[in-house]
């Protein structure tokens, strides 16, 4: 089997699907990498839910401004055309359906589009942030998975989520290290599969039935 996709490969593949001019919210962690792979000639406006549109890359160490951070509390910059606003406006953008695409990570995604990405249980205090608002409010919800299968061997793509839900029937598409999968009324539909990976091999690593789109594309890891 060929190499699985790296986080950068997945981010590059996701970025190809974001339309020019889209208002996009990138979750903390791996989804942030999408910003590094915006195709030439395309312009995305990045929304950061703490109150920023037009989020730019991290500043040079000597140009850090503690008043300018992202949702992960990391220093960022603002690009031309950007704006600052308060929390109620920021979440009106999300909850009012103004954000075109929300790209986030997940522990589990179900064939009916349910997502669990905020709680693993345990004794630590729970923390939700803006995840429930994003999955309920963004026009499209895409999930990025650095690995199709969790460390314990269980697939992150399941028939029904067993972890506490973030939202119901809201995920439109999944990008993993093995495949790109649409979720429609009949469940998982594979549109892209890792080059060299058999359909049965992908199915064996997925916790719910798969259908394969006609002309299913091949994903290749790039040497970076």
């Amino acid at each position: 089997m060929t190499a699985r996709l790296s986080a950068a490969d997945i981010a590059r593949r996701v970025a190809q699907d974001v339309p020019d001019g889209a208002y996009v919210n990138l979750g903390i962690g791996m989804p942030m990498k999408v910003a590094d792979h915006i195709p030439p000639g395309r312009e995305f406006v990045l929304h950061s839910e703490n109150g920023l549109l037009g989020m730019g890359p991290a500043p040079a160490p000597d140009a850090v401004d503690p008043d300018l951070t992202n949702a992960g509390k990391q220093p960022v910059t603002i690009v031309p055309g950007g704006a600052y606003f308060h929390q109620a406006d920021s979440f009106a953008m999300i909850r009012g359906g103004h954000i075109d695409v929300s790209i986030l990570g997940a522990y589990q995604v179900a064939a009916n589009g349910d997502i669990a990405n905020w709680s693993l249980g345990g004794s630590k205090p729970p923390a939700v942030g803006g995840a429930m608002d994003l999955v309920a409010g963004a026009r499209r919800v895409w999930v990025m998975l650095s690995s199709h299968v969790a460390k314990d061997g269980a697939s992150k793509l399941v028939e029904r989520c067993s972890l506490p839900l973030t939202g119901l029937a809201c995920v439109d598409r999944i990008y993993s290290d093995l495949a790109v999968i649409e979720i429609d009324a009949d469940g998982f539909l594979v549109t892209d599969i890792l080059d060299g990976l058999g359909e049965n091999e992908l199915a064996a690593q997925t916790g719910a039935p798969l259908r394969f789109a006609p002309g299913c594309r091949r994903l290749r890891a790039e040497l970076t």
Partner: peptide, 11 residues
């Protein structure tokens, strides 16, 4: 602790 989604907290 009462945990509230961030947008719900703001609203």
């Amino acid at each position: 602790l009462e945990i509230v989604p961030q947008g719900t907290l703001a609203e």
